[in-house]
Design a protein around this nucleic acid. Sequence first.
DNA 1: ACTTTAATAAGGAATGGTTCCGAATTAATA
DNA 2: TATTAATTCGGAACCATTCCTTATTAAAGT
Lengths: 149, 149
Amino acid sequence: MLVKKLILQKLREKGLKITPQRLAIIEVLMEKNDDHPGAGAIYREAQKKRKGISLSTVYSTLGELSRQGIVKTLQFDQMENRYEGNVGEHINLICKGCGKIVDYETPLLIDPAKIAKKTGFRMLDSRLEYYGYCRECANRPKQKGDKRQ
Amino acid sequence: MLVKKLILQKLREKGLKITPQRLAIIEVLMEKNDDHPGAGAIYREAQKKRKGISLSTVYSTLGELSRQGIVKTLQFDQMENRYEGNVGEHINLICKGCGKIVDYETPLLIDPAKIAKKTGFRMLDSRLEYYGYCRECANRPKQKGDKRQ
DNA sequence: ACTTTAATAAGGAATGGTTCCGAATTAATA
DNA sequence: TATTAATTCGGAACCATTCCTTATTAAAGT
């Protein structure tokens, strides 16, 4: 979960500056965390808080936060990257109809130690996604040209 | 696992044509399946089998095979999409050092029926990835400027 | 074998999210 | 304040992927 105080502390520790732009972006991430917003959405929201902020600043800040392990970047087919503050292991349920992403919490699935023993692979982080249709999209009557499976 | 005969049968069933270009691409996918090759690599290999094949044909064929559930498209940060013939549920161990992708087979992890009951989400397919370092990259002595975590 | 036709291939242009670059600005120290 | 390294901005560049148009061709019928 994103906590402003902890984020700022982490940035300071790393010698990174606290700028109005970064504050705006962090606030947006906290407010819109459940949406798993993309860079474009974050940019538009951040504009409301601090007009004049540039898209490249949004990208570089998101990159920095991602590098610091504060947010997680999710990249997709056919849609822009999305960012989430829940960096713990969980499953993202991704709707192919409306693009909505919902977190599904589960206990740790596979023991990284077991994988390391079997394959020598040292696991650092994970990305677990289920694709399908959310309740609303699954129940919506089929339209002409609907690509639903 | 990719079996040529079954792939061709599936294409015919759907009224899709068997062209020399598609045959070349399917052969490349079968030969290089363990590499989880990207569109560029598939293009270069397919050129060897049938010179003159175009990149857009490679893309459209991969798109068609993906739509038919014959291959699975994996999209990544900072690297081109990769394609794999193993469409069953398994974990992809992805090395941050060399980009190598290895399949790790596991029994079904989370019951889709349980998710459906709890959230109404109807799961169709999954993408499970662990990021880290393979045995070789983990053991390689740290270089100057090494970004390893 | 021909004919027909819908599917496909090719080549190049367009797209669009993301990254990169250089100059100007600024936060955080001394 | 002065210093300086980090950051911002704007726009250009990037590049994997998609789109578009025309020509070609596989497949099924005659």
